Simulated assay, not measured.
Amino acid sequence: MIKILLVEDEPDILEVVKLALELYGEFEVVDCSSGEEALRVVGDRKPDVFLLDFMMPGMSGPQLLARFREVPGLEDVPAIFLTARTGAGTKSELLELGAKEVIYKPFKPTTLGAQVKTAMGR
């Protein structure tokens, strides 16, 4: 099983992503609704991949990723961003921050698991 730490502030999107990944059958999903919550639980979970919302109140996905990179053992955990922001520089900006992939909202729940596996090189 691939362990995913999912961080998404919109409850409906959080539920759809979690359900889509769990139904895929190869993922164990720990979900958090904020960066602060994710920082509290990440130490107990050694995730195989982070799936982070780009824009969240309080702490953005890029800010959260930077904080994760400071935690011993999490420096190399791949990160995938979910975003509704489709501006020309968004993807390149996130890839420069170390993201493995950027998945745009709205996404297809039926292909989300395959997108995550492809981004992880599996």
Rank of each mutant, 00 (worst) to 15 (best):
Tyr24Asp: 15
Gly87Ala: 13
Glu22Tyr: 00
Gly87Glu: 14
Leu51His: 07
Leu14Thr: 06
Met1His: 11
Tyr104Asn: 03
Pro62Trp: 06
Ile2Leu: 15
Lys91Gln: 14
Asp12Ser: 15
Lys91Ser: 14
Glu75Val: 08
Val71Ala: 08
Glu26His: 11
Tyr24Ala: 12
Phe107Met: 01
Lys105Ser: 08
Lys18Phe: 08
Lys100Thr: 01
Ala99Thr: 04
Val16Met: 10
Gly89His: 09
Leu51Met: 09
Ala20Gln: 02
Gly89Asp: 15
Val102Asp: 01
Ile13Thr: 09
Lys108Pro: 01
Ile2Trp: 07
Leu51Thr: 01
Glu101Phe: 00
Phe68Asn: 05
Ile103Leu: 03
Arg122Cys: 10
Glu10Lys: 08
Val41Gln: 10
Glu96Gln: 15
Val7Gly: 07
Gly87Gln: 15
Ala119Thr: 14
Gly25Glu: 15
Gly58Thr: 13
Gly113Thr: 12
Leu5Met: 13
Lys108Thr: 09
Ala99Trp: 01
Met59Gln: 13
Leu95Cys: 05
Val77Phe: 08
Glu37Tyr: 00
Met59Trp: 05
Ser34Trp: 04
Ile80Trp: 01
Pro47Thr: 09
Arg85Pro: 01
Glu26Ile: 07
Gly35Trp: 00
Pro11Cys: 10
Asp31Ile: 00
Pro78Leu: 06
Ser34His: 02
Glu10Phe: 02
Gly58Leu: 13
Asp44Trp: 07
Met56Tyr: 04
Pro11Met: 15
Met55Asn: 15
Val42Thr: 01
Val102Ser: 02
Thr90Ser: 10
Asp31Pro: 02
Val116Ala: 07
Ala114Arg: 14
Gly25Leu: 12
Gly73Cys: 05
Ala114Asn: 11
Met55Gln: 15
Thr110Cys: 04
Glu26Gly: 11
Glu26Thr: 12
Leu74Gln: 12
Glu26Tyr: 11
Asp44Arg: 14
Glu93Trp: 03
Lys100Asp: 00
Phe68Met: 14
Gln115Arg: 13
Glu37Asn: 00
Pro47Tyr: 06
Val77Pro: 03
Thr83Asp: 07
Glu15His: 11
Leu14Asn: 13
Phe68Val: 04
Phe54Gln: 13
Glu93Gly: 06
Leu23Gly: 12
Phe107Pro: 02
Leu19Ala: 13
Ser33Phe: 02
Asp76Ile: 10
Lys91Arg: 15
Gly43Ser: 05
Ala114Thr: 13
Ala79Tyr: 00
Arg69Ile: 04
Glu28Val: 05
Thr111Asn: 07
Leu51Arg: 04
Gly113His: 02
Ala119Val: 08
Ala20Thr: 08
Lys100Trp: 00
Ile80Asp: 07
Gln63Leu: 04
Glu93Gln: 08
Pro72Arg: 01
Gly121Arg: 05
Met59Ala: 13
Leu19Asp: 14
Leu6His: 11
Thr90Gly: 05
Leu74Phe: 10
Leu112Cys: 12
Asp31Gly: 07
Gln63Trp: 08
